[in-house]
Nucleic acid binder design. Structure first.
Length: 243
DNA sequence: GACTTGATCCCG
DNA sequence: GGGATCAAGTCC
């Protein structure tokens, strides 16, 4: 048991202070308005939070419009329209008949690039995640793109929402304007006020690039980025890549 | 290897 | 318009 997580506040009672601290740390839209490979790289180690539940990103993949594996490769459709919108919005898609996956749109509007969030190290709202996943095992809570969305309760309604800070009024199609703006997921630097240091890996990630998982169109393109030392990856690194 | 549903493709 | 295909996954 190298990492203690037993003392974590399970998400109740401290939402006020925690939310204020995190909001001030939200990554701005400009963070995502850069080449998608850079953004993917830089997102590792950042927090991704949704309604007080989330953790530290340890695995992401980059997708570009000139990339046969990207949903945007064959042009704009109703499904992928959000990818063609401004950077910093969440692109949520439904796949395999039962799962949702979440991306954040990158680069200038119209470029249709995005970063898929594949795994995070759970740090906040552990009890809610366990209930949603029907699972105790911390390690399998968010270690996979569809596991992550289930744990954070991300679905169709989140598609198109702005994840930028400071809190953005320009919500996407699902934004009603009268809902709770913090319901949308958002990103933050790792130094978040009020975070329990016992559950947060403050070290800088050791980033390794590998081929993306499950893509058939562009096998071999090394646009999956992981924190090589994380125990929370969707798949362990090949032996040769570990050190 | 099965599961399960919706978007997209291809034919007509 | 309609049927076939297959998908950036997860679980047993």
């Amino acid at each position: 048991m190298p990492e203690s997580v037993g003392s974590v506040d399970e998400g109740s009672g401290r939402d006020g202070a925690e939310t204020r601290g995190i909001v001030s740390e939200r990554l701005p839209c400009a963070f995502f308005d850069r080449p998608v490979l850079e953004v993917a790289h830089d997102l590792l180690g950042c927090a991704f939070m949704c309604d007080g539940v989330g953790g530290r990103l340890v695995e992401v993949e980059a997708y570009r419009a000139d990339d046969p594996a990207s949903h945007s490769y064959r042009g704009r459709t109703a499904r992928n329209a959000v990818m063609f919108g401004p950077p910093g919005r969440l692109y949520v898609y439904f796949t395999m008949g039962l799962h949702f996956c979440v991306n954040v749109v990158c680069e200038a509007e119209g470029q249709a690039a995005a970063v898929l969030l594949r795994a995070l190290e759970p740090t906040d709202g552990l009890q809610r995640m366990r209930e949603r996943r029907g699972l105790e095992d911390l390690r399998r809570l968010c270690s996979g793109p569809a596991r992550l969305t289930q744990a954070l309760a991300i679905g169709r309604a989140d598609n198109g929402l702005c994840a930028c800070g400071p809190v953005c009024d320009a919500d996407g199609p699902a934004g009603t304007g009268d809902g709770a703006p913090d319901r949308a997921g958002f990103f933050a630097r790792e130094s978040v006020e009020g975070r329990d240091p016992a559950t947060w890996s403050r070290r800088a990630p050791r980033i390794v690039a590998t081929p993306r998982i499950g893509v058939t169109a562009a096998p071999g393109t090394p646009w999956r980025f992981v924190d090589a030392d994380s125990r929370f990856l969707s798949r362990p690194l090949p032996r040769a890549r570990r050190r």
